[in-house]
């Protein structure tokens, strides 16, 4: 579905993306995980024709994103990190304009369907500026779905939202997967990646440092973490199983937490940094 070969993007001396090789399969939810500045948004920008790569190539269903941008644009829906809706316009007007850009057939009916699906039917004629953050984010996703895209790009879809709204959006994203849409999402929320993604690619400073299912990535590291905190300083010990975790905890002479390994531990192990730096 999506293939990138040696994809790189430089902004003068800054290397935003450095030789990315990736293959995303049809119908999967693929997560790009990494801290701010890791190259997630740059990857999305290139794949959605917003940025040209400095080196390398990217294909979406055999179409080259640089040389054949128009067929690529017809296949994709984009939900950017920032809420770039027209806030002076109503929800319906926002969707109508977007639908006309994509020449969506039966536009009025499609808008009605989507507003129903996103639980915004009663708000169709309301100005977007009066919507809550969660409603705006939902409308942004609905807008990306208008053209019935085969690939949906969600760049940090739940950033800045409270946990309840975040869970609502996760459920919406899972429903979309059921409809067979390939979803590429970026996030720096561990639980989001673990909950939603079939596979994740971990990016750090523009380079792909791990690529697999969340479970497989975590399994490589071990089963449990013993987190010891002494005088505000935290130490991590990775162990294979619970028995080893208990014996490790007994050697510590301070407050100890035993928990299962997650993607954040993988990231710390691979880079020495936390995801939310």
């Amino acid at each position: 579905m999506i293939i990138t070969q040696d994809l790189s993007k430089h902004y003068r001396e800054v290397v935003a993306l450095d030789g990315l090789y990736l293959e995303i399969h049809p119908g999967e939810i693929f997560g790009l995980l990494g801290p701010n500045g890791a190259g997630k948004t740059t990857t999305i920008k290139i794949l959605t024709t917003l940025a040209r790569p400095t080196r390398g190539r990217a294909f979406l269903q055999d179409y080259d994103v640089v040389r054949q941008p128009l067929p690529v644009k017809k296949l994709i829906g984009v939900c950017p990190q920032e809420i770039n809706l027209d806030k002076e316009l109503s929800a319906y007007e926002n969707l109508w304009i977007y639908g006309r850009l994509y020449r969506v057939p039966g536009l009025h009916q499609r808008i009605k369907e989507l507003l129903e699906f996103g639980d915004l039917r009663d708000r169709a004629s309301h100005l977007v500026k009066n919507f809550s953050g969660g409603m705006q984010r939902r409308l942004l996703i609905l807008r990306a779905l208008l053209s019935r895209p085969q690939v949906l790009f969600l760049d940090e879809p739940t950033v800045g939202l409270d946990p309840q709204v975040r869970r609502q959006l996760w459920s919406l994203i899972q429903q979309l997967k059921q409809e067979g849409i390939t979803i590429v999402l970026t996030t720096h929320y561990i639980e989001e990646a673990e909950m939603l993604c079939d596979r994740v690619g971990i990016l750090n400073r523009g380079r792909l440092i791990a690529l697999d299912t969340p479970a497989a990535i975590v399994a490589r590291l071990g089963g449990y973490v013993v987190e010891a905190t002494e005088n505000g300083k935290r130490e991590y010990h990775l162990v294979k199983d619970k028995a080893e975790a208990y014996s490790c905890a007994q050697t510590e002479n301070c407050e100890v937490i035993i928990r299962q390994v997650n993607l954040e531990d993988v990231f710390i192990q691979l880079t020495g940094e936390r995801l939310s730096r």
Binding site: K74, P80, N84, L85, L101, Y102
Partner: peptide
């Protein structure tokens, strides 16, 4: 600022 222009660039319009 609003990044509404980017919607045009990502849409199938010339």
């Amino acid at each position: 600022h609003f990044r509404t222009f980017q919607v045009y660039v990502q849409a199938p319009v010339t």
